[in-house]
């Protein structure tokens, strides 16, 4: 059994493949993982979550509510103002990066990710 580190991460991605990989990577590192299939669901899961997650990893390109809108919506809620939010996407377009930054993202990881770098990233933002 992996030792729990007592940190909860919300992952938001419409790809079940990606969700599966994230869950495996994060749970393998001892994190508690909750998931949402798009921005709308992510927001629901976030608000229903108890305890509140320590960090969020979100995709950009999703149906219904995309990553930018999701980050913005989360940031609009006072209690999540400082919640670290990392974008995980295949894109590395500087404009999009700037937009993510502007809406309040904490970091940007390019897919495909390695477990090590993902865990390192979360460790940094949740340290």
């Amino acid at each position: 059994m992996v030792e729990k580190v007592g940190i909860r991460v919300l992952t938001v991605d419409d790809s079940r493949t990606m969700q599966g990989m994230l869950r495996k990577a994060l749970e393998g590192a001892g994190y508690d993982v909750i998931q949402g299939g798009d921005g709308v669901e992510g927001l629901e899961v976030l608000q229903a979550a108890d305890p509140v997650p320590n960090a969020i990893i979100t995709d950009i390109n999703m149906p219904r509510m995309d990553g930018f809108e999701f980050i913005e919506a989360v940031r609009a809620l006072e209690q999540y103002k400082h919640l670290p939010m990392i974008v995980l996407t295949t894109e590395s377009d500087p404009e999009k990066k700037a937009r993510a930054r502007a809406v309040g993202a904490t970091g940007w990881i390019v897919k495909p990710f390695s477990t090590d770098s993902l865990v390192a990233a979360i460790r940094r933002v949740t340290a």
Partner: peptide, 21 residues
């Protein structure tokens, strides 16, 4: 990415790029 190496079906060293660090 340039340092993308075909990864056998296993997680290990796929490229990642954590931008602020």
């Amino acid at each position: 990415p340039a340092d993308f190496t075909p990864v056998p079906v296993d997680f290990e060293p796929v490229m990642a790029d954590f931008d602020f660090g």
